[in-house]
Write a protein that binds this DNA or RNA. Structure first.
Lengths: 339, 339
DNA sequence: AACGTTACCGCAAACGTTTGCAAAAGAATA
DNA sequence: TATTCTTTTGCAAACGTTTGCGGTAACGTT
């Protein structure tokens, strides 16, 4: 379907001006008299002129597109961050393109390259869960600013928008201690998960702080954090001769699964076993008892990441330096730890 | 940060060829000998040549970008559709840009125009909830293919990927009749919501079919479909002297709220009142009792919408004709209607 | 030997915009 | 009046790519 695009040229001929004058007039260049500007703008309006972004981008070597790479858009926390990013980008004249990695490092590399080839100004990215080889990111960083959020890696020298995972986890465990729990279990991901290990660290620190023993039998790990794995591991925990009296789950999904299992075996929450999750996903108020969980302000993370990105794009400082932007979290106390 | 982009020119000079030959060689033009092609491709590889998409798009008047407009990415059904779209677009050489309307018709119009101005090849779109003025869409349709999904409007002459809302709702209500329910209430949105009215239609049809009276006191409407509104309206229903024995909610969120209220007042589900939702959101298996609901295959909707879009872009048929692609739904029966 | 074919390649224009530089016109100064 | 300065405008190049058309060389055919 053909479109009747009007160009600068048409405005120029119609007004007996040169193309350059028209261009400058529309861009409010100081060299152009107010009267000419008015005339030009009126004519542009009349002819429904819309600038050809491709030509503009081509000429100025600038696309004003920012790439976003996430494992999956259906993950609710990711979606919340995304929303923050989109909300912020609307205020600017940057558009965004979004791609998924599905937690596949190979795909991650492909997507990254495609985006660079596409000429994005910068890349906002959450690493996939088990990314080990960071060379694609280092390569990208040589060409464009890269900002990590959610799943980050301190080995990549770029700015990272994160929450203080250790403190957040410590705070959650502290709460369990405060309500009188002594045998606190943890359900986490395996060692190659960055965030999981951080939260585990917070868990250990708090136990130590309160002189509670770290019991290996209360530390459970698994590959993917899902409701089903939560169910399964909870079953393991309640089969222990020496049961825990609280379970700290490093994701809400784990926690949901745990609660399901505990209810199935008629274990009282939180009296017998208290449960705390991490993320404050929408599930946490659906499940009963409502879940005590760490609130991660996804929208704010997205917003700050986007703001920082624009800053890095527009200042021509070097952007290959590590920098950490930390977001405050807070623990939301609900029925699963407190009646 | 400067980037050392290699251009066709560099390959050409390095190989003592003309730019045109290099361009043709890389595009596998028949006029170029196999040997030259090999040489060129090897050199391109060596110099890490990446085509300048802007220049290419500018020259060919083609961006290979498809625009996606949705009310909000955090809505789980939307996210699922999005995933389907992204998954499909990966297989092609089209990229996507995503924008939100937040159910604001003004914003919708803006976003639509921005995308067109940006030179997208086509637009995939879910209308915002209360869009009344369809002229922006009609205008867009004059320039580019437009495909609607989820929230659609039959007044816009374009292809629409939909589920058979009436049949799906009828099927759900039928199920309630089958388990012996006679006073079936409905919680829906107001009359200006297209999907809601369709589902309401299915509700009425089924009642008529089984000679059940349509009782106005059992028909509740509200502005936005949320858990809280579900809670509130359920309370209204159970305060009726002649209570319903089942509630058909036109969204899962409504249903979740309803269940919460029913449990609060110790009303037995499904014995006293059965509940059915719509969408099969992730919440439906978190809530207890698990929710019987209509499964809308979001991934499939996204996939088909994308496929159709590419078809419309690449065939130069006229695309301003109404066409409906219907997706099958199925009712997932869980504890809220069946123990 | 003259001509036609085929296979391969290069020239140069074009896409719409921005921008350095020069030019023209008018205003101010000497 | 002649000179300089300021304001406003136009010329033309450039960005990287594709592509119509023309050209050359080699070969085959009469």
């Amino acid at each position: 379907m053909k479109k009747e695009t009007t160009t600068l040229k048409q405005i120029a001929t119609s007004l007996n001006l040169s193309i350059s004058t028209v261009s400058r007039a529309l861009n409010d260049h100081i060299d152009i008299s107010e009267e000419t500007k008015r005339k030009v703008k009126r004519e542009a309006e009349r002819l429904q002129y819309v600038p050809n972004i491709l030509a503009k981008g081509f000429r100025k070597q600038k696309t004003n597109i920012i790439g976003i790479i996430v494992p999956s858009v259906i993950h609710s926390f990711t979606a919340t961050i995304l929303k923050g990013i989109l909300l912020e980008s609307e205020k600017t004249n940057y558009t965004t393109i979004i791609a998924e990695t599905n937690n596949n490092p190979e795909k991650e590399k492909d997507v990254l390259n495609t985006m660079l080839q596409f000429g994005v100004e910068g890349i906002l990215m959450a690493l996939s869960k088990h990314t080990r080889d960071i060379s694609p990111m280092l390569l990208a960083l040589k060409k464009r600013p890269l900002i990590l959020f959610d799943k980050v890696s301190s080995k990549i020298p770029c700015t990272q928008v994160v929450i203080d995972e250790i403190a957040a986890a410590a705070n959650a465990v502290e709460h369990l201690v405060n309500i009188g729990k002594k045998r606190i279990a943890i359900i986490k991901e395996r060692e190659d998960s960055y965030n999981s290990e951080k939260r585990f660290e917070g868990y250990k620190q708090t136990l130590k702080k309160h002189d509670l023993p770290i019991d290996e039998s209360l530390i459970l790990s698994t590959d993917d954090s899902s409701i089903n794995e939560g169910k399964r591991l909870a079953r393991e925990l309640i089969c222990l001769k020496d049961k825990p009296d609280a379970i700290f789950c490093i994701t809400d999904d784990f926690a949901i699964g745990v609660i399901k299992t505990l209810k199935k075996f008629a274990i009282k929450i939180p009296d017998e076993i208290a449960v705390v999750g991490f993320s404050n996903s929408s599930h946490s108020t659906i499940i009963e008892p409502n879940l005590t969980t760490v609130n991660q302000p996804g929208g704010r993370i997205g917003k700050l990441a986007m703001q920082q990105m624009i800053r890095e794009i527009e200042s021509n400082e070097v952007f290959g330096t590590s920098k950490s932007i930390e977001i405050q979290t807070n623990l939301i106390i609900r029925e699963s730890t407190f009646l």
